[in-house]
């Protein structure tokens, strides 16, 4: 019984990690928290639904196309809306408060656009993965296997991209210091768009992966944002391995809490964990030092 819950918690957790990875990536690159990230996740799930159920692509292609679509969407949002604010400089005083409020407004806009297009009802994504996998005494539905495998693969690809390519090096340079990166000939605005695109693609992958087990609905992004943020903070904000670790912790904590304490309060546990970590160790588990700004 406990192992079943652990497996479920881990696979949900790795999804939280995937979305948290995007939030952390944007944070480390731009020093902003992207408030509309949960909505990108929701859009990704809907893209997946439309591509799979209505256009009839198979699952891996759906995943890939949805990621690309969401990535383009992220780039457009960054270019059209956030660019204006970040180019005005972004401290987090009242002037920088604009960034947060703008992100919040963006989330509301995206949510309502999705609501107008797809309606308020939750829709299932009918994917037939075949028989569950038997692992000793545990039977594991294939959708969970997909979640684990794809997430780990995406994380590995991201790691290779950031650590072993020239483009990844440029992104890390932008994250470290934008001015000096500029002087070294890095195209900083392009890199920022790229960061946004990659982060949004990761969120969309999370959405497509969760679609077969959960209903796809307009309100799914909102809770996801809070949980992914909790994951990012628990692991240490801005730290990419920390985001994954935090996601796993939040997933397991939440599933075990729902199983053994009270199922109807399930969505509160992540927040409790967040507050606890903030009180006890605000840098998170793997965070290096608390960044005062942002």
């Amino acid at each position: 019984m406990l192992y079943d819950f652990l497996i479920v918690g881990l696979s949900i957790g790795i999804l939280y990690g995937l979305v948290a990875l995007g939030i952390s990536l944007i944070y480390s690159g731009l020093d902003i928290v992207h408030f509309a990230h949960g909505e990108i996740f929701m859009f990704g799930a809907f893209f997946g639904l439309v591509l799979y159920d209505e256009a009839g692509f198979n699952y891996p292609i759906t995943l890939f196309v949805a990621m690309i679509l969401a990535g383009i969407m992220g780039v457009i949002i960054e270019r059209v809306f956030y660019r204006r604010l970040t180019s005005q400089g972004g401290g987090y005083t009242v002037a920088g408060m604009g960034m947060i409020i703008c992100g919040f407004g963006m989330a509301i806009i995206l949510q309502n656009i999705a609501f107008l297009i797809w309606g308020a009802n939750g829709r299932p994504m009918h994917v037939n993965f075949g028989m569950p996998v038997e692992l000793g005494t545990i039977t594991l539905p294939q959708s969970y296997v997909w979640i684990l495998v794809v997430s780990v693969a995406l994380m590995a690809v991201l790691h290779l991209f950031l650590k072993h390519t020239k483009l990844g090096l440029a992104i890390r340079a932008v994250a470290a210091n934008k001015d000096i990166a500029y002087l070294m000939g890095v195209n900083v605005p392009l890199m920022i768009s790229l960061i946004f695109g990659v982060a949004c693609a990761l969120a969309a992958a999370g959405g497509v992966l969760i679609a077969p087990i959960n209903y796809v609905q307009v309100e799914m992004g909102y809770l996801m944002l809070i949980k992914a943020f909790a994951a990012a903070v628990v692991g240490g904000f801005g730290s990419l391995p920390g985001a994954i670790l935090g996601g796993l912790m939040v997933g397991v904590f939440e599933t075990l809490g729902a199983a053994y304490i009270s199922g109807s309060h399930k969505d509160i546990y992540a927040f409790l964990l967040l507050i606890f970590v903030l009180m006890v160790r605000p840098t998170g588990l793997l965070g290096v030092a608390a960044k005062v700004k942002a």
Partner: peptide, 13 residues
């Protein structure tokens, strides 16, 4: 301990 966006998300939660 939290500023800016951290605080915003914590209060949202």
């Amino acid at each position: 301990r939290l500023e800016g966006a951290y605080l915003a998300l914590a209060t949202l939660g």
